[in-house]
Amino acid sequence: MLGRTANGLFWMFRYLERAENTARLLEAGLRMALTRDVQTAQEEWRSVITTSGQRALYESTHDSYDGQSAWNFILRDKANPANVREMFGAVRTNARLARTNISSDVWEAVNTSWMELDQMLSRPVSQGAVGDVVSTIRRAGTQVHGAFEGSMLRNEAYHFARVGTFIERAESTARILDMKYFLLLPSLSYVGSSLDSGQWDQVLRSVAGARAYTWLNAGQIDARGIVEFLVLDDRFPRSLAFCRSEQRANLAALARMHGAEGTCNELMRDADMHITDLTVEEIFEQGLHEFLIDFMARNAAISGAIAEDYRFLA
């Protein structure tokens, strides 16, 4: 297939994942803000915006943090070029670019979701509507992935899309963890103490892992358990270990189809060595933040190498 089309597929699925992750982050923030007093709710919204990586931009256009401004900023504010409406527009644009390499089912799932969301986000989102918007975004993701799994050939197009999904998801989980770690555990002495279980609960909700975590850990919430779950537990589909194994499998499939490995497979192996057999104690020893920074850098390097190896750009 064309390098440009592969690039389109890769980014179509990165943006889809990003939109979905942003919606989950927002959803967790909404829930958190509801259960807090006004003062703390402001802090929550600041934290949501910070985690989304848009704090400087938000503060340059807003004087204070409140729910209405925050979710509109995240969802549709033109001042934020990375709002969800734009992300979904990018999903659709990339789907159009890659139109000849996706099935009609996938295209229609993207197009109808986009029509619905674009309509919903064409006006400011009220308190009453924000929940609907968030669930529409999640449903859009589910629909596209469902159509994709059910109707696509397992050819290189499939693997480029999958690898895009897991590059983005790994990046997102790592960033959420890093942001929260930094905010909530400023010094090592906090590690292990049961700090604010509400905050950690929010982290788990942001990655759709609250239920799974509770089920696996019988309700015991602590930093160590959560890190182990989000980084190392390869049963959880948003953990770093899981994302890595999906990346690895899809890149291996691409190498098989092209009859040769590229730089991305090499980087993948390096990255694997770094995480295999790692224990949560070792992560805390080297510092969770340092570990995550290194992880994200490797993730970005793999993404860049894929683009290079498969001639995404002229």
Binding site: L2, A6, E156, F160, Y310
Partner: peptide
């Protein structure tokens, strides 16, 4: 996506 390579018009594929 296209370039002339070895006297032929060629597509940049993966």
């Amino acid at each position: 996506d296209l370039r002339v390579v070895n006297g032929l018009v060629q597509m940049r594929t993966t």
